[in-house]
Design a protein around this nucleic acid. Structure first.
Lengths: 343, 343
DNA sequence: CTGTTAGCGCATTCAG
DNA sequence: CTGAATGCGCTAACAG
């Protein structure tokens, strides 16, 4: 029933290091070395192996390599990509990964405890060399998953008051919002509203809100009810926020939006109403998206280099992977208040 | 030197199906079954295994599973995410993957032959269950990589005149551009310019351009020199295109932008100049991004459901993976000319 | 329903 | 510089 003795074991000639080795007349190990440590192989042998690989159209199996410890994959969980400026970060991460020969496993997660934990489990299942998280790790289950494992973790997160799991890259959202609120005050605005997208579970937004309040307090401005709203992350959300806020308080003179997308929507709404910006109302955003400078009127906003944040997070991770333990646990990128015409 | 006889083989108790099995007192295979075919295991055994897994915080190694043939990873190569509407597609793909228990390996590629080939090689190295490509596969090397392999491939691509590698999901960019050009003509515009982002290597953009020309021809409008420009995919690019086109031809009365991002930029430029839209010039976009409807004035554009395209491509792929061979090779999604006020 | 055997393709030893 | 043996963790395939 089984073919042991005579049949030449007709196993389909699967294309692998073994097969290539056979064709060239060397040991599989030699082929493997050509792939990962070319210098350990003599130039001639190497050339012959390379040629065979090319002719066969052989693409080494990365899964197998990874199982032996040298995985070149990094996993990341990010918030929804649309309208959020996250796309820039992902681009930065992707570029940096690519240049270093890493692949990127991407999971999108919402800001809920269960979703977060599930995403992290999924990623860990693939035994990535490292993890980059943009969700605020809340659940204890998730934290312990991460801390037990030997997988390095970079959180792209709020810098302030955060107990890092491992490494953190980010900006102080508190500072940025504080700075923008102060900036608006310095420009003469007295009654500044604040608009955010859903804050729950997002430490960055939370800190922006706190920064806004801290600035008001330091300015000696009393909190008034109804100066804040929460809307979906869409241009329409921005318009809606403008409407709600200005309905409640006719005297509101500026609004600080926690996202440029929102601010852009609000500005369109002002055009629709025939309101002059910044005369009738000042509008400030957050993120400095591509459109911000081009907008009419140009948008005053907080510039955070999202692309660089993405790149940096990967770099920090890879640096740790290459055995460098001298890496600071926290990397804070700068920010800039970009003063344009909208406020 | 080696411990064979007496030493209890002190292999670090790695956490794996084996270890879990030992703790529960079953065979590794049973644990494996609990993981992938729970129904094949008796409820009690299953419960005990699940409990042990949970207590140990065990996350099964997906690399190992994948090597045995049941990989749940799909690979994708996409153009740059920023400003392109690709983010929506990625979101759709991600959501659909997630719901089906798949993970997504993401590679960003530029539209060059080498980059494309490199990206595809990288992806194939991970032996994904399937591939979704948004680059126009040009190089023969890449095509053969794809065709030899047994990996199902979905191309999100132009529908028209495309020789598919395997499956195709997309819209007819030709038709969309043709329809929009006709639409503009029907609204009375006589001299319509065309603006695109760099077209080279991007079959979708190529087809939009061809569609535009075909419509002009059918309308009996002669091609005039200088009615087209190519600019970077930024709002500023859109403004620049407007400037260049209106400098060349004072009498141009509408511009069809191959991307909403461009159109938005152009509209801002009009505001800056004090030009009324659509009186002084009509502006049409492509994509119907979130902002389009909210813009002042609202943007006339081509609506293509990018999110759905992403979802659909994954669904088509998974359907093929589950053995369904009756899948049509081409899936064409619809489009819609959204007539708003900007043209 | 459960267990046994065998091996996916590569790379880490260690020995030439 | 090259090779042989061994196993990463899991799951088909086949018994029982």
């Amino acid at each position: 029933m089984s073919n042991e003795g005579d049949a030449p074991k007709p196993r389909a000639q699967r294309l692998g290091v073994r097969e290539i080795a056979k064709r060239v007349g060397v040991a599989p190990m030699t082929v493997s070395r050509v792939l990962s440590n070319p210098d350990m192989v003599s130039p001639e042998t190497r050339a012959r192996v390379l040629k065979a690989i090319d002719q066969a159209g052989f693409v080494p199996n990365r899964l197998a390599s990874s199982m032996r410890g040298s995985g070149r994959m990094i996993g990341t969980v990010v918030p929804p990509l649309i309208n959020s400026g996250i796309a820039e970060q992902v681009q930065g991460m992707s570029d940096e990964c690519h240049e270093s020969g890493y692949s990127m496993l991407l999971v999108q997660g919402e800001f809920t405890t269960e979703a977060e934990e599930h995403s992290i489990r999924t990623l860990i299942g693939w035994r990535p060399a490292g993890l980059i998280l943009q969700s605020f790790v809340q659940s204890d289950a998730a934290r312990s998953l991460l801390q037990n494992g030997a997988t390095p973790v970079v959180e792209i997160s709020e810098i302030k008051g955060h107990k890092p799991i491992d490494m953190v890259v980010g900006v102080s959202n508190f500072e940025t919002a504080y700075a923008m609120t102060m900036h608006l005050a310095a420009k003469g605005y007295k009654r500044v509203g604040f608009v955010s997208t859903p804050i729950h579970g997002n430490d960055r937004l939370q800190q922006r809100r706190i920064g806004y309040h801290a600035a008001l307090k330091d300015l000696g401005i009393k909190d008034r009810a109804g100066m804040e709203v929460e809307v979906p992350l869409t241009a329409q959300g921005g318009a809606e926020a403008l409407n709600r806020l200005t309905d409640r308080h006719k005297d509101i003179d500026a609004i600080f939006f926690s996202s440029d997308t929102l601010a852009v929507g609000a500005i369109q709404e002002c055009h629709r109403r025939g309101w002059k910006i910044p005369d009738r109302i000042g509008i400030a955003g957050y993120g400095d998206i591509d459109l911000a400078a081009q907008l009419f009127p140009p948008l005053t906003t907080v510039r955070v280099d999202r692309y660089e944040m993405g790149r940096r997070s990967v770099r920090v991770l890879l640096s740790r992977l290459s055995g460098n333990q001298k890496i600071p646990t926290i990397t804070s990128l700068g920010f800039e208040i970009v003063d344009r015409d909208s406020a």
